[in-house]
Design a protein around this nucleic acid. Structure first.
Lengths: 344, 344
DNA sequence: ACCTCGTGAACAATCGATTTTTCATGACAC
DNA sequence: GTGTCATGAAAAATCGATTGTTCACGAGGT
């Protein structure tokens, strides 16, 4: 039923009594071809009558365009990353591309998967989710065979990159706490090698420095997952002097922080304030409704798609994009308040 | 740099002083061709020296296989659905297919997107995430042009379907509450037209009937999102006689239920117990760590991929698959306990 | 010497659409 | 009546790989 008897352009042409050449031009509305109106009409009606659908593979073989963009993503189990994916995916789709999805880790580990993915002719370009470190080989392998754009990668890259203002997010979060009167604020960071985490941390440090509190910079390394937040929190809980507030690198990490604090019966925000970066659907449903800095993740994805599509079309290809609008903004909920000392 | 000067099979053949035919056979390790060892060696080394990569489009034009599978998904903003996606994606990838991702809603609304997606030759098959109702036309359009498998669809379908035991999940959740002594248990359902929700609800009803409580069946319709759970909860809170326990159709919905109860200062589980279906990473970090019934979502995806791949290969194609292993299982956390009446 | 056979590899068709080139027809001018 | 031009459409090349068929050559048998 499926592939059998699918009419080809030749079938349409024969049925309409014309050559495939003329049928192709009519159906593609080639402006520089002269056809009689009745012929044009005949071809069109035969095409619809037969249910003709162009063969995309044949078309891209001739045309050197596949109409497909590859999306190489990290950790889709995190809603944060899914937001980015959605932004990229919908932008590509609106531009008429179909999107191929792949997992960065799998591609990096499995050479035959990688080869199948970037096989010649399959993709017009690739959007590569970066910022998880240690992926130079993958970036190299992909960008050497197909136009590529990176999302959220390290600073020095051969490949065009789109970034969001992670440092500003760190600053906004920290300044919110400073404004409430906190002066011992710990940054719960991501993995040691993450530049995304580093950038947020530098925003945190900058805010402290501006407040004259550079001596109070305090960083605990965690990771991107709830368990990482939980581990970091347990470490903090064991200290003699606990900070009065936490800036957590990521909302998923923060979910582990909050539930660990709850399990330890530490009241938020009365005993400790928590603010995080990324405002996702779940943050207001966590152990405590979580104050968070909103970052334009969806835009990160769509801007990357935009940049790639421009590059594919050969239009002005700025090399990098830094998304500053909308600026990171705090969404205030229940997890932040004045430090205990000010509560009387 | 990219497409320019990519060596073709002909380039390899010329360089090695053989015909493209023999080069193709050697590189693909065709067993029924006889070549001298030195020729074979020469072709191989020329291929690697030139960095030859087969042109996937040319290959699939000739071979009538694209090596690509389409994944049409609903609501990727829900982690629940992402789990399903991940299962399908990784199974396809391991079988050597690349995966094309599309949004069911967009495809249903936008005809040109749909046509681009199922364009002849692009896909060897499609996995279609169903169970959101009202998608007959999409299923029809897709399955008429390419082999397809449905995930979690309604019962009467023309297309092979993979299902999980939603009814059993409803039963397990309900029996857990019954076992704790509850007898007024409300089911917070999904949208009116969702068969997935209906199946879970029927499991709930069946459990009540077996307990002789058929008169206590009570269903409030909500939806798949936190706001839906919140709205349903507000409705329940306004009643004169509140139930002592809730079975919530979905963990995302339940997150809205729990935070609404928290905001209304209703203690969980002391005043009301809540159990949900779907055990995702976030449920233990919600307002109250949520008891949940684990369903094999990842397997739903991978089984669908499996079924589709078998169909593509023309191997035994069972028409439907019903996943019963592992059976739905309760993961006990803090949101369920005895009803107030038994607490003394 | 002639025919047969096996070996190793070239030739050529094919997949379906696009695109450049070529061609047939009729109208018109001379 | 012959040459020129515009019109409308057919022919044929092309994209790159795969695959069924054909072919050249040398060894071996008789």
């Amino acid at each position: 039923m499926y592939p059998r008897g699918h009419p080809t352009l030749r079938d349409v042409a024969n049925e309409a009594g014309v050559s495939p050449a003329i049928a192709s031009r009519v159906l593609n509305e080639d402006p520089k071809v002269r056809v009689r109106d009745d012929t044009r009409e005949r071809i069109r009606s035969v095409a619809t009558a037969l249910g003709y659908v162009p063969h995309s593979v044949a078309r891209s073989l001739r045309g050197a365009r596949s109409g497909a963009i590859g999306l190489v993503m990290h950790g889709l189990d995190s809603p944060i990353n899914v937001d980015v994916l959605a932004g990229a995916q919908s932008r590509c789709t609106r531009a008429g591309y179909v999107t191929l999805l792949a997992e960065a880790e799998e591609l990096a580990e499995n050479d035959s998967q990688l080869r199948a993915f970037v096989a010649r002719g399959r993709l017009d370009g690739v959007i590569l989710h970066s910022g998880y470190g240690q992926e130079d080989r993958l970036v190299e392998a992909i960008s050497s065979s197909v136009p590529a754009v990176l999302m959220n990668a390290d600073d020095e890259q051969q490949v065009p990159t789109v970034r969001i203002d992670d440092a500003a997010a760190g600053t906004v979060a920290t300044e919110h706490l400073l404004g409430l009167g906190h002066d011992t604020i710990t940054f719960v960071a991501g993995p040691q090698r993450s530049q995304t985490s580093d950038r947020r941390q530098s925003g945190y440090q900058e805010a402290l420095e501006r407040a004259g509190l550079d001596r109070h910079v305090d960083v605990v390394h965690g990771g991107w997952w709830p368990e990482d937040g939980a581990a970091a929190t347990r470490e903090i809980l064991q200290r003699e002097r606990m900070p009065t507030a936490l800036v957590v690198v990521n909302a998923v990490t923060a979910s582990g922080v909050l539930s660990t604090l709850r399990d330890a019966s530490v009241r938020v925000p009365e005993e400790i304030s928590v603010v995080t970066i990324h405002d996702s659907w779940f943050v207001e449903h966590l152990a405590v409704a979580l104050s968070a800095v909103r970052l334009p993740l969806h835009q990160l994805g769509s801007a990357a798609a935009e940049l790639l599509i421009e590059a594919i079309d050969g239009r002005t290809s700025k090399n990098d994009v830094f998304i500053t609008e909308p600026a990171p903004e705090l969404v205030l909920r229940r997890s932040t308040g004045p430090p205990p000392s000010l509560l009387g």
